[in-house]
Write a protein that binds this DNA or RNA. Structure first.
Lengths: 193, 193, 193, 193
DNA sequence: AATGAATGAGGGTTCATTCAT
DNA sequence: TATGAATGAACCCTCATTCAT
């Protein structure tokens, strides 16, 4: 249960970046949140960017294991899709302030400005898309790969856009409606098949 | 055709905020971009936040007039919907760097942190949603208002999410696929009605 | 008699750099010595290096006007040479701590590390050498230019080296002996001519 | 042939200080260059200053043995003088970047600031001067000790000043001319004697 | 309406050093 | 003998803002 200093820094910074964004999170913020001195921080990390990149790397690792290797890798493809939508939804369900999607926030804040971050984020999103395509292909073997890809992209866009709407309204409604439609789509198509 | 100093400041700041975000845009950046001294700037605006709020206000005014009062107010509701999707798509089509959606970026960056900005953005998004609901209702009179609302939210989510994907990939593909699906949906539903 | 803030900064920094060297002179030192706040400092100068370069530029300008345009430009070339040696000597004569030569110190500290400084210093030293060559040529018209150049370099080296010895001993003796020899040489040669 | 950790630290630091100066050489630089951890470093040395003083002590020891006990202690005094000038010259001859004189650099950087360093440097320079005086006295027995001392100082000044000029020009020419003159002087005087 | 001097808190980073194991 | 975690002052620089003219 004991955490090393390095882990504490990363954990706290993950939370700070999620809530405030990368730019708005200062080294002082990180020091205060993790109870660590300046020198110590730079003992473990070379720069603020290095912390940021490590945070993102770990975050994506977490998503990979939970989402790609876990949820999307289960046997039944339709259940996998439903589980993914639910997983995404449930994360936000219990919040009091809606900070948005940890990944989406980083994409919007950094993709056009910080190539190192963009690279990591893009790689993950590509993997996510491909995983989704595979699951969709498994769920609907009669469809073309192109059709699956289109649906995968649309599915991801809906989720990401849904959480953007949640953020501006500070209200879960939009995501609820998006989820409803997504599940319906998945079911509807299933009915037809 | 001459621009006043105040207008010049706002125009340049709009561009800077679009590309870099609000936090990353410093007073110095604004001064440099608009060729204005410190005194001037603080003569016209009380603070950086005041500039930002004015920029957002003008931006939303522009969207209101172009999108809500223009595109979405045309007689034929289905044409209105298609036009809206195209308008959104075409804005991004000609870019070399994909900075995302001016509104979406602000929502993600500021909604959870800056109530004044959130308020403006939320008000506009609400109006946009309502306008969409009305147009959808007009297009599909047989449907319930709830169904229209669900579709409106999903439409907006798809667009916002699509542009998020574009930003992370720095590639228009995702939005192209989203647009394809949206136009298809609008047609498909039309066929059924 | 009133000095502008900028002038005050430069004057104090010149003194600090002379005594401590460029690296050892911190922005805080400069702030304290010139009674100026951080923002103010960076209002007038873009960076510590910019201050340093300006200090060096002004210093070299001063040397140019006093030494090259003044002392070395007088009609009688032998008097000019003697006056130069005396001018150099007298500067150090009245000091209690021997900080060395303002130029020599900078050369030793920065020539191998900081190209911008080296460039300025080298340009001045080249001018100084050439001025000396001309004066020597005027004093001893029968000599070859090469011989004059050799003597010029040796004269400069003696002065610079002399003040290095003064610095290590914290004692003017070495420079006194160097001066003695230099004046003797000039006289001696004069006798021969 | 294996070097102890302590020796490795000293060797690398000597090089770093020679190239960058004492102030500009950080503990991190030393650690990196010698491949030693923090604990190691402070196990062998009490402080950065202690390392610096040891470096200087060793350096001066080296000069003492090579120059004072070696070159200047050979039987023939005139050969000794010529050998000294050549030794000094040849060290610099093969460099691509001219970092100046290891001793001269330290004198200029530290004499007026760091009493401990100044003490070491001054002691050595005094010994060097005295050794030179003795050799000159041996070479020219007819001269007064005062005259020898004057020449000794001037010889040292020429060398030190010559290398300062080399440093600012990043070009060996100046030292070549200084050497030429010095050897000529030694010969000239020899001729006269 | 306009200029730019002045302020001082805070930005990210490096420093030499000490401590615990 | 060796490791590297921890400390905190100081480094250069940028920030948004205010003031005097």
């Amino acid at each position: 249960m004991k955490m090393t200093t390095r882990e504490r820094i990363l954990k706290q910074t993950t939370e700070l970046i999620y809530r405030q964004g990368y730019l708005a999170t200062s080294i002082s913020d990180i020091m205060a949140a993790s109870g660590v001195g300046k020198g110590q921080l730079y003992h473990y990390f070379a720069s603020k960017q290095a912390i940021g990149l490590e945070v993102v790397t770990q975050l994506l690792g977490e998503w990979r294991s939970q989402l790609l290797d876990g949820i999307l890798s289960q046997e039944n493809p339709r259940q996998a899709l439903v589980a993914m939508v639910d997983w995404f939804f449930e994360f936000h369900q219990n919040q009091t302030v809606f900070y948005g999607c940890s990944l989406g926030n980083l994409i919007v804040e950094l993709s056009a400005q910080e190539p190192h971050f963009q690279e990591l984020l893009k790689a993950f999103m590509t993997d996510w898309e491909e995983a989704l395509v595979s699951v969709l292909q498994a769920a609907y073997p009669e469809r073309s790969r192109g059709a699956c890809r289109e649906q995968a992209i649309n599915l991801l866009a809906s989720l990401q856009g849904g959480i953007v709407l949640v953020k501006v309204h500070q209200d879960l409604d939009s995501l609820t409606l998006v989820r409803q439609r997504l599940l319906q789509d998945l079911g509807l198509v299933a009915d037809r098949s």
